[in-house]
Amino acid sequence: MGRIFDVAAAQDIPLGTHKIVTVKGRTIGIFNIKGSYHALPNICPHQIGPLCEGKVSGTLYRDKKTWELHWTEEGEIVTCPWHGLEFRVQTGECLAYKQVKLRTYNVTQIDGRLLLEI
């Protein structure tokens, strides 16, 4: 169990948005995806870019059987604003390099406040 920090009011991060907070010298992105909150370090492992300042969007997926192109995971993928590396917010997985996975932080909502565990 890590330490708990009160980082924001839930209403400050409405559905589909994200915000960067600073806790004990670390910058962390808090994301509201479909009503649940997730947190990632604001550091892209590639060249240490400010990952969580990037846009949250979806991504492209090609069905290997039909070879059709689909738009998927709308609102669940953050793209680093420096070089475009994509990460799945809920899990921290890197889409391009499957062996790369960011750590994630627990965020809980209590009485309208967001509590971050680090």
């Binding site: 590639h46 991504t59 492209l60 997926y61 090609r62 290997k64 070879w67 192109l69 070089h83 475009g84 590396l85 994509e86 889409l95 391009a96 390099y97 499957k98």
Partner: peptide, 15 residues
Amino acid sequence: EYMERRRYVQHLEKP
């Protein structure tokens, strides 16, 4: 290129 543009070659399962 893949680092930045994986979205263009979504069919690649690896770099």
